[in-house]
Amino acid sequence: MQLKEKPVYKEIDAVIEKYNKPGGLIRILQKVQDMYGYLSEDVQIYIADRLKLPISEVNGVVTFYSLFSTKPKGKYTIGVCLGTACYVKGANDILKKIKDELKINEDETTEDGLFTLRATRCIGACGLAPVITVGDDVHGRINPGEVPKILSKYREKDVDTNIKNKDKVSCFRVAEYIKE
């Protein structure tokens, strides 16, 4: 019999202990995503193992909800509202402008790790159409021309920090050997 390294994530264990009850999966995934920024395959497998759920089910939930991300996200998530009102007011042009500026597509992250671009459904701010969100900020009634100015504001904020190589949360990973 071979021994295989089994990871132990103490931080995830703490979350599971707190929320482990029937129907608790989404809450657990949410909390763990808050810690790591996204849900990697390894983390999903770990959660499935701890909750004794089929990994296909956990992965099904993760990929169903747009709330969950399976790829690392940038520091700021840009959400471009494509709801009806925003769409009519030219949200598509804004989305295109952002793509050009950042040289990424939807659901991708810029190389410097600063921005992740998302197209969203109506965010309920139709009075401000067309509207985008950057992190927790809302920018309303904008036109494509204003996009560079908005983005540079966030770039300047982070000029001194090297985002690219900075882990958001240190993962406390302990090797525990299992019989395979």
């Binding site: 089929p54 990994i55 296909s56 089910e57 992965n59 099904g60 990929t63 169903f64």
Partner: peptide, 19 residues
């Protein structure tokens, strides 16, 4: 055995093993 489940959603739904 639970190999399959619905992954993703809408038109992109696939009935697939995890990942």
């Amino acid at each position: 055995v639970h190999v399959y489940s619905a992954q993703r959603r809408g038109l992109n739904t696939v009935i697939a093993p995890a990942f």
